[in-house]
């Protein structure tokens, strides 16, 4: 019984890994106060989703889908192509967020989200 579960887990190892990574990223993003760490967690989360998406198209022993003699088993190219777009989007999100972090640091002098909220709150009162 337990062997069966282990085998099933091993068969879905990519999905399992991506879900674990997703949860790590999600948790870090919501609980850590450092803005840079938040961004790193965001990237981990995105990577987890990319891994999940690419794993859908993966095929045991498949090769790059280019017409060459002797190649019969192809990996599904659609998820890879989509994920390339996803990576571009993730890069632009990260770059923009880093620019914002630089500005936040300039204005508040800290990278701690709680301190930023505290400074802002003091000004309101």
């Amino acid at each position: 019984m337990s062997m069966e579960i282990l085998e099933r887990l091993y068969g879905n190892i990519y999905y399992l890994t991506s879900v674990i990574l997703f949860v790590i990223g999600f948790h870090t993003m919501l609980t850590h106060r450092n803005l840079i760490k938040k961004l790193m967690a965001l990237n981990i989360m995105d990577t987890a989703i990319f891994l999940f998406f690419v794993a859908i198209g993966y095929r045991q022993g498949g090769q790059a889908p280019i017409l060459l003699p002797g190649v019969t088993s192809f990996v599904n190219p659609v998820p890879s192509a989509l994920i390339l777009t996803g990576i571009v989007i993730s890069v632009s999100f990260t770059a923009f967020a880093l620019a914002l972090v630089v500005l936040l640091y300039k204005h508040y002098g800290t990278l701690d989200s709680d301190e930023i909220i505290a400074i802002r709150g003091k000004k309101h009162v």
Binding site: S92, L98, A99
Partner: peptide, 17 residues
């Protein structure tokens, strides 16, 4: 240009894709 934006201190912060 993203690199240059960050180098210039993020004074111009539109990082449109």
């Amino acid at each position: 240009s993203l690199f240059q934006e960050l180098l210039e201190g993020g004074s111009d912060e539109h990082g449109n894709p």
